[in-house]
């Protein structure tokens, strides 16, 4: 029982990170119907940005307070990752909008290859061990054989995720930007006729997605304590699976999917086989798409002939 509880805690922590990345996939797919293959690598890039600023603040500038440092890193990371996503959208995707259907997909795959290799070339191929942050744990139940622990990291990850999701929900549901976004999602041409600046809305969608991925990047770096240039692909595919499982295009679905994928992954590793944990994710992805293409909370895709 204690073991299960511990896995539950770990799964929810991991799931919040996946959920944050998944929102980027689901929003972009909802608005321009494209799988943004480079999103996983934008996330990976954000882990490096976070690491570099953390080192710069604590080592070079000698900032004493960790909380302040993390807060600054978070803001800078969101800013610069958004800048990257904005530039990628502007240079690699916008010229291809309305073009041949496969062109943006290939362009996105090219961008993904470019980003991971850029980080490899500029930062080197080796794993980067991150200085340990927030290592303390709280012992919840001190069982005889197995103590259930909750670390400060995990509390922070879940708390930050919940706060951001509330803020994000507010933006989408209550602001004019969110309204423009939902309008573009339903009918881009009609939205443009009614005075919505479609290009700007799409750019902002990419920016918001990347900002959330940057938060996920910082949390991921703190949680795992190691970053690598190749860390974009697998978390990216898992977050995409989360988006699909929750119903692609649905924002609550992305969060729910993220939590489910996090839980399934931890429980699968704990009870079945740690080697095949990625196979579990890929199987869920395939099975969901084949048998339930609209996911848990998505709207069914009606095709008009």
């Amino acid at each position: 029982m204690e073991y299960f509880l511990q896995q539950l805690i770990n799964g929810v922590t991991l799931g919040s990170i996946y959920g944050l990345i998944a929102i980027g996939y689901t929003m972009v797919f909802g608005i321009i119907g494209m799988v943004n293959f480079a999103h996983g690598d934008v996330f990976m890039l954000s882990t490096f940005i976070a690491l570099i600023f953390l080192l710069a603040l604590t080592q070079v500038l000698g900032l004493g307070s960790l909380a302040v440092a993390l807060f600054i890193v978070l803001l800078l990371g969101m800013l610069l990752t958004s800048l990257w996503a904005w530039a990628i959208e502007r240079l690699a995707y916008r010229p291809l909008r309305g073009s041949f259907r496969l062109a943006p997909l290939i362009s996105a795959i090219g961008m993904s290859i470019f980003l991971s290799n850029l980080v490899q070339v500029t930062q080197g191929p080796r794993n980067k061990p991150v200085p340990s942050v927030l290592g303390e744990v709280i012992v919840l139940t001190g069982g005889d054989v197995y103590a259930v622990t909750l670390s400060y990291k995990q509390i922070m990850i879940v708390a930050v995720t919940v706060m951001l999701l509330v803020a994000f929900w507010y933006v989408v549901q209550r602001t004019s930007l969110g309204r423009a976004q939902r309008a573009c999602e339903q009918d881009r041409k009609m939205a443009a006729l009614l005075g919505v600046d479609v290009d700007r809305t799409i750019s902002l969608t990419f920016v918001i997605g990347a900002a959330l991925a940057a938060v996920a990047g910082l949390l991921f770096m703190i949680y795992y304590g190691v970053v690598n240039f190749a860390d974009g692909f697998v978390p990216g595919v898992k977050a995409f699976t989360a988006a699909v499982l929750g119903g692609i295009g649905s924002l609550p679905g992305a969060v729910l999917g993220g939590l489910l994928i996090g839980l399934i992954e931890t429980l699968w590793s704990a009870y079945f086989s740690i080697d095949y944990k990625d196979v579990a994710t890929f199987l869920i992805l395939a099975v969901t798409l084949v048998f339930m293409p609209s996911g848990l909370l998505g709207k069914p895709d009606v095709e008009k002939v």
């Binding site: 080192l55 710069a56 080592q59 610069l80 800048l83 980080v119 061990p129």
Partner: peptide, 25 residues
């Protein structure tokens, strides 16, 4: 300016491990 913004973290500061396996910039 955009290039400057994009290049600042990843290109300007390279993370390297020193002798005691700590990362330095």
């Amino acid at each position: 300016l955009l290039a400057l913004g994009l290049a600042v973290p990843v290109l300007a500061l390279r993370t390297e491990q020193n002798m005691s396996n700590e990362l330095i910039l």
